[in-house]
Design a protein around this nucleic acid. Structure first.
Lengths: 327, 327
DNA sequence: TGCAACATCTTTAATTGTCGTCATTTTTGA
DNA sequence: TCAAAAATGACGACAATTAAAGATGTTGCA
């Protein structure tokens, strides 16, 4: 590997001069600059980012901790984070926590050891107190934690309202809300809260099922949902995630219900699952791209000693597809 | 940030001694070890991996270049790579190339600048010659490139045969193969080749559509497929990816064909799309987990000067779901 | 012309946090 | 007592950045 030393020797200059050319700092004559470029090209030189990071005392890496990558919502989020990061010359290190506190803690430590510029963290079970003494900015997304440097969420209450209202507007009279994931954060609770508010405001009756899930995998046991659907004459289902909505759609199909004619279905997240489903799944759209951009921007802002909001709540919208449309 | 120096001072030892404790090398008395551990704990010390990487002249980062993260196949692959990597103490840096040669080249250079242990690269359009002089092991997956250190593929020809044979076994008499992505590699060509072989061996007639796609997004224009389905009385469709199969399923539905009764449908990759679809999509299963494991293992092997196979072809299987099953 | 003042450019040397080699000291056992 | 083994220390890489000092060149003014 060629180093800055080799370049300096080749160009007949001192190491410091080459460094200044590389970083565009201080006074450099055009002639010197040219000499350095020539030498760099000739030797096919690329600066060693590891040495740079050590010397500069900061890196251009962002740690991203998700429960699992292989999930439409998270992979979409990661995709957006990566694209934003690269624009600013940053890159991401990806970490699968499985939502486990232990792994999350390990990965937080890993990020610290690697002196990342910042950490973006999604759902997990690690206690908030562990977040405070890391000494690195931590941005949480859809996970409200006081101890994080900044929290980015979407308007989950509004989203809950939006989905419920849409079902009501489409003529549903008895709704079912399925909480796919009960966690210690407010996320799913807020979605449910919005749902309940809308139902109550409209005087529409509803049921709620809380699935016990220890991870993000799709639940196999839907017996409780089945029971309610059979007995209660449900005509609108709102699921707190698209993945679960897809699973519920299968159940409805198997039981012979027609969607949307007999039962209408709404998901949350508006991930690609919603798009691929036939019928397409109406879903509350999270501005995943904006949230990712914001998270990366906050990390860069913090690095540059700019103040960032402690909490940012982004608006949601409803993407209407065939699962709620009467033809 | 506390450094090894602080720990040494706290423990009343020299830096080198602390380093030896950290790395479990050379002679260390239990007493000294204990002192170091105590000091580390007291100061909440974590070794700086950046400095380590610089000093050791090798990192524990693996660069992963995919066309896009937000895709069922790639996110599944990335997930598996991350999990394997972490087992060995490695981590991944994720890079979205959009399949563009220019970005791929940039990212290859990025990996070089960051002195990653190795690179795992998926589909893209960069010319093979650029791969040779990087000086870092490059493992390609589902992309046959002579210039890579190792190539990992699944048995695409066998997979093509498997899917076609299954449709034939299920009673289909006129098949359609949809090549969702024509690239310079052999991947899609091989799938098609296997398909054709099986059809010819069974004396079954078939059509082939090659969709022109510049990226991995789902094609919007399916007019050619529509034309063939309308005119040729197709009763079995084999798509070279699940994503496209999902899109074709929608088309079939819209045109009033029943799946699987009138038209049977097979995809490739066995990604979560296949699982979520209703009816579930029969798909050729790629051993994504094994491929990921192999790739990471190869990088570690190469780092330890062990020889790895130039080309590894892994077996595929068929996951049968409702899209091809007669009830 | 001589010289200070200033601008421009380059070099030197210290720093970043850790590893690893070699040298040195201490302990052990015959 | 003395060599071998065990334990520890000192110091130079590693590949960059960066501040300060030094080396030029240019200009203005007496």
């Amino acid at each position: 590997m060629t180093t800055i030393k080799d370049v300096a020797k080749e160009a007949g200059l001192a190491v410091g001069t080459v460094s200044r050319v590389l970083n565009n700092r201080g006074y450099i004559s055009d002639q010197t600059r040219e000499k350095v470029y020539k030498a760099m090209e000739k030797l096919n030189y690329q600066p060693n980012e590891v040495a740079r990071a050590l010397s500069r005392q900061k890196s251009t890496l962002i740690g991203v901790i998700v429960p699992l990558v292989n999930h439409p919502y998270f992979s979409n989020s990661i995709d957006n984070i990566e694209r934003t990061a690269i624009e600013y010359g940053y890159n991401i290190i990806l970490l699968n926590s499985d939502g486990l506190a232990e792994k999350e803690y390990d990965y937080l430590e890993f990020c610290r050891r690697n002196h990342v510029a910042g950490i973006i963290i999604y759902y997990g079970s690690l206690d908030g107190s562990k977040f405070s003494d890391i000494g690195i900015p931590i941005i949480s997304i859809e996970r409200h934690m006081q101890e994080c440097t900044a929290n980015i969420e979407c308007d989950n209450i509004g989203g809950g309202r939006l989905g419920a209202q849409h079902l009501i507007d489409q003529g549903c009279s008895h709704l079912l809300f399925i909480n796919g994931f009960v966690d210690q954060d407010d996320t799913s609770g807020h979605r449910r809260q919005g749902f309940e508010e809308a139902c109550q405001a409209a005087g529409v009756s509803y049921d709620i099922v809380e699935l016990v899930q220890s991870d993000y995998r799709v639940p196999e046991n839907l017996s409780e949902i089945e029971k309610i659907i059979d007995s209660e004459d449900i005509d609108g289902v709102f699921s707190s995630s698209d993945m679960i909505a897809a699973r519920v759609y299968r159940l409805l199909k198997e039981k012979g219900y027609r969607v949307p004619e007999e039962v209408k279905l709404v998901g949350f997240d508006d991930s690609n699952v919603a798009e691929f489903m036939v019928p397409g799944l109406t879903s509350v759209h999270q501005p995943v791209d904006k949230m990712a951009q914001l998270a990366v921007n906050y990390i860069i802002d913090i690095q540059n000693d700019r103040v960032v909001p402690k909490r940012s709540i982004l608006p949601v919208s409803l993407t209407v597809r065939e699962s709620t449309e009467n033809y």
